[in-house]
Structure formats: C-alpha cells, structure tokens
Amino acid sequence: MNPYLPVKAQIEEVIEETSNIKTFVLKPEEGFSFATGQFLELTVPGVGEAPFTPSSSPHEKDKVDVTIMKVGGVTSELHQMKKKEVVGIRGPYGKGYPLDKMYGKEVLILGGGVGMAPLRSFLLGLLGEADKFKRIILCYGVKTPEDIVYKSEFRKWMKNKKLEVYRTVDKADKGWKETEGVVTVLLDKFEVDLENSVAVVCGPPIMMKFGTFKLIELGHKPENIYLSMEKNMSCGVGKCGHCALGRFFVCKDGPVFTYDMIKDIPEIWD
C-alpha cells in the first residue's frame, strides 16, 4: 500500500463561514472513517498538500467536512475551488480524542477562532452519545461576532439541553449580547468538578497557551487537559520529520496530546 497517494474526493458543498473561513463538504470516492481529532492530508491537485482535522461528526461515514481558513498557498487555492471540483485526501492519521476516557465525566471544550473546526467534530462526537457524559460545556472565543464559525449550528447548540454554551468576542458590536473579552474570561463563569473532568483546547497558539495556563491556575490537572497541536505535518506517517515536537512526531503520537505529555517541551506554543 502506498501511504502517500490520496483518494479522490469531490467537493459537494462550500459553506462560507466568515470572510476568510469556508467549510468544504467532501465526498470521498472510497469510504473514509476517522476518530474525532485525527487529521487528514488534503491535496489541491497541482498545488500542494496540507494537514487539516475534519470538522464533521466521526459518526458520519460517507462525507467529511473540513473547515479551512485562507492563510497560505494551499488554502488560498482551495478557497477558489467550487462545488463538484476534485481534491485528494489521505489518512486519517494520528491519535484523536480518547472519548472512552471521558465517559462519565464533565467535558469542558475551549475553542478559539478556526480552532473550533476539530472541536465541532469532537462536539458532534460527544453529542452522538451524549448520555455517556456527565456534562458538556463549550466555551468559544473569536475576535468579532463576524468571525464566529458554524453560526447556524451555534443557534441549535445554544438550545441543546445537553450542552452549556459560553461565547465571547474580543471586540463586540452593537448586536452582541454575550461576553466581551479574551476566551479565558469564560472560564470564570462556571465551576467544574476538577476531580471528574477533562478539558479540550484548540485554537491559535497564543490562545492555547493562555487557555492552558488558566486551566492549570483553576486547578485542572495537566493529564486531563487535551491539546490539538498544529504543526506542518507533511507525510502524516512518522517518516518525514516536519512535525517533530521534542521526541514526538505530532502526526503519529498526536495531534492530540495531554498537556502532561508535552509540557516540558520548549517549542510547544511557538
């Protein structure tokens, strides 16, 4: 088997989330199943390849969503692509969120910006078997209300009895009735059972850093904080070296790590 060769996937739908974030609903030619938190390599034919974590439910078998911010070469080209066009995907790679270790616990999700993408998948994973979790709390922060992804889904989530949702924006506009301030302020709004909870964090590096520090300050244990690490995984299978994080390869040992596993590695927030 050739691990470097993608399978074809047709773009079934393009959803504009914000001015620079789109969700692409992909229909792979062959079935593609993944555990939430695992990532895939997406090829824009003739342009390049980049790693993304699916944002759709792991329970969904024949489609996979990827929510992508336009930041570099591959993503800019991808943003030009339309419905019915063809990309490549290979994977899934790495270790996802260990849902089974979270059963019976309070699950705190802390997301920032487009970091909500893997967390949406995770959340949908949780909601797919919601009775197995004691409590699900979602905290989400973005720069402005305009930058919120999954706007219509948030409306549903906010009504969902199984879910507590807190949102904040760095800079509010007239219509914003929720919290204003950096995402960590949300953590002061509720209490969790520290002996029986996990926290899952994903967002830009600076948000991950201060989010994690705040959680630690509040008494969360490093082994119960799960982080999705962003590195430039190229091969996805632990051979090419790009995603080395200390002694780990993010592609095979991660991308989900507990803070405890990586806290002594100097490069983690850079």
Binding site: T43, P45, G46, V47, E49, S234, C240
Partner: peptide, 8 residues
C-alpha cells in the same frame, strides 16, 4: 527528513 510535493 523529506518533503512531499504535489505534481498531480
């Protein structure tokens, strides 16, 4: 270490 590039 290597880099994969796309020639698709």
């Amino acid at each position: 270490c290597f880099l994969l590039t796309d020639l698709s």
